[in-house]
Every structure is written in structure tokens, then in C-alpha cells.
């Protein structure tokens, strides 16, 4: 479903700030794969998602989604294949618009936007049903401005928007990192349910190793712009956080000097 082949990306090339973020990245996902991604700061996790989403174009390599080469496509053109949830709850929704308007925008992802009504009566019923899945009481607040929602509510709404029109690939960039533990658990739970229900191919970055082990059928660890560890199936089920820490020290030759990951 997703094929990343030899991806390279260098930021600020030729300056003192030169940073090779992706260094020959290879990743191949089958349909229905739910892969969790871990790695230290600057390992290239978010860079990988941004490369897939087309925030900028990669320097080398190719990106294929379901066999379609999207390497040179602009961000908004790739959006038809992708559902995205960002780390910052403010990024995924339009604050000055209503809940139903945000959903209506999302349900038209990939479609030509014409002079037809931006939202129809029939849609509203559908959105009400969909919002019930989130179990946050948003189904009774369709016309509430999104700016009035909490971070967790906005993140859950973004998740729904990303999956309202079934994407070929769902990209989750630490989408629970900015939430309190209880809300984070709720959003993760909703993620699991939606991914399972629609059988979505998913890439989820997380800083929480327990989550990385508990969710999905495959786990990859990234370091210096490459995948350095890749487990799936039963082997992944039996993983422990200490295994991952040991693995990281082994391949990177350094201590996992990141409190956020240690404590998680």
C-alpha cells in the first residue's frame, strides 16, 4: 500500500545548518498494516510523514501509495489518498468554522470544490452519527465553533475528519502527545476502533513505547533518517519497553537520553 524507496532529504544544504533528515529511507507497508514508529529526537520520524504528505518534495527516492507514484505531487493533490492528524491539536481543524463545516470540508477531500452547497441536510445526519463514535458528546454540538473545543476534542475531531472519507493511508504524527493522559487514552482508543472498523493502513508516530508496542501489528525504530529495527506479528506482541531501549543502545551506540521516552 505504501512504498518508500531510497528517500533522501537534506535541509539547509550547503550551510552550517545542514541536516540530513532522511538518509536512504526504505519502508514498505501492506494493505491493512498498522505500523507504529519510534525513535529519538531528530531521527526523521516526522520528516518521513511530511515527505509522504508532500509538505515539501524529497531530494531523492520515490513515494508510492497503492501503486500510484506521488513523489512529485503537491501537498493538496496527495491529500486525496491521505488522512492526517498532527501533533498540535490546533493544526488539524479550522478554528473559525463550525464542527459540521470542518467535517464537510473533510468529506470533500480529493473532490473538485464547486458552487454546490458547502453542506447539505443529509450530510448533517451522517456527521451526527459519525461523531457518536468519538463518544465526546460532540454530536449535539454540530454548529459549535471548533475554536471553543478542548485540545482533546479537536484532536478527536481531526481524527474523524482524516477518516471520514476513507484514506488509502492514515498518518498520525504523535497525535496524542499534546493531550493529558486520560484524553490521550480516549483518542488512542478511538483511533484503534476507527482503524479496525475501516481496515485502514496506518502509520503512527509515538513517543510512548508502551503505546508503540500495544497498538498496531508492526513496529519500526528510526535513527538518523533510516529504519534500524523492524518487528511485526508475534515478535512484536512479546516486546517489552526494556527490549526497545536495549535495541536502541545497541544500534545507535548511545544511551537513550530522552526522558520523555524513558518515563513513558
Amino acid at each position: 500500500m505504501l512504498d518508500l524507496t531510497g528517500l533522501k532529504k537534506t535541509f539547509n544544504a550547503g550551510t552550517v545548518n545542514e541536516k540530513t533528515a532522511l538518509n536512504g529511507l526504505e519502508l514498505h507497508l501492506k494493505e491493512g498494516d498498522f505500523v507504529t514508529v519510534i525513535g529519538g529526537n531528530g531521527a526523521g520520524k516526522s520528516t518521513m510523514l511530511n515527505a509522504i504528505a508532500g509538505t515539501w518534495l524529497v531530494d531523492e527516492g520515490s513515494i508510492r501509495i497503492d501503486g500510484i507514484d506521488v513523489t512529485g505531487l503537491s501537498e493538496h493533490k496527495r491529500a486525496r489518498y491521505l488522512g492526517r492528524v498532527f501533533q498540535d491539536p490546533m493544526t488539524g481543524t479550522a478554528a473559525s468554522m463550525q464542527i459540521e463545516e470542518n467535517l464537510a470540508l473533510a468529506s470533500r477531500r480529493g473532490a473538485l470544490r464547486t458552487l454546490k452547497p458547502g453542506i447539505t441536510h443529509k450530510e448533517r445526519e451522517f456527521y451526527r452519527e459519525q461523531l457518536k463514535i468519538l463518544d465526546l458528546g460532540l454530536e449535539d454540538r454540530l454548529t459549535t465553533g471548533v475554536g471553543l473545543l478542548s485540545g482533546g476534542q479537536r484532536q478527536a475531531l481531526t481524527l474523524l475528519m482524516a477518516t471520514l472519507k476513507k484514506p488509502k493511508l492514515l498518518l498520525l504524527d504523535e497525535h496524542t502527545a499534546a493531550l493529558d493522559p486520560k484524553t490521550a487514552a480516549k483518542v488512542l482508543d478511538a483511533t484503534d476502533r476507527i482503524v479496525k472498523k475501516d481496515h485502514l493502513t496506518t502509520v503512527m508516530i509515538t513517543h510512548n513505547m508502551k503505546d508503540a508496542i500495544a497498538h498496531g501489528n508492526r513496529l519500526i525504530m528510526m535513527h538518523e533518517g533510516r529504519v534500524i529495527y523492524d518487528v511485526s506479528g508475534e515478535e512484536k506482541q512479546n516486546l517489552h519497553v526494556r527490549d526497545l531501549l536495549a535495541k536502541f543502545e545497541e544500534v545507535s551506540g548511545s544511551e537513550f537520553a530522552n526522558d520523555r521516552m524513558m518515563l513513558a
Binding site: G92, A94, A95, S96, A111, M161
Partner: peptide, 14 residues
């Protein structure tokens, strides 16, 4: 309206 409200989100929604 979405473009003015949140350009990142708008591009993500195609």
C-alpha cells in the same frame, strides 16, 4: 474560508 482560517489543515484536506 478554510484557507484563511488554517492553511495547513486546508492543504491536508486537499
Amino acid at each position: 474560508r478554510a484557507t484563511g482560517s488554517n492553511a495547513n489543515m486546508s492543504r491536508a484536506q486537499g
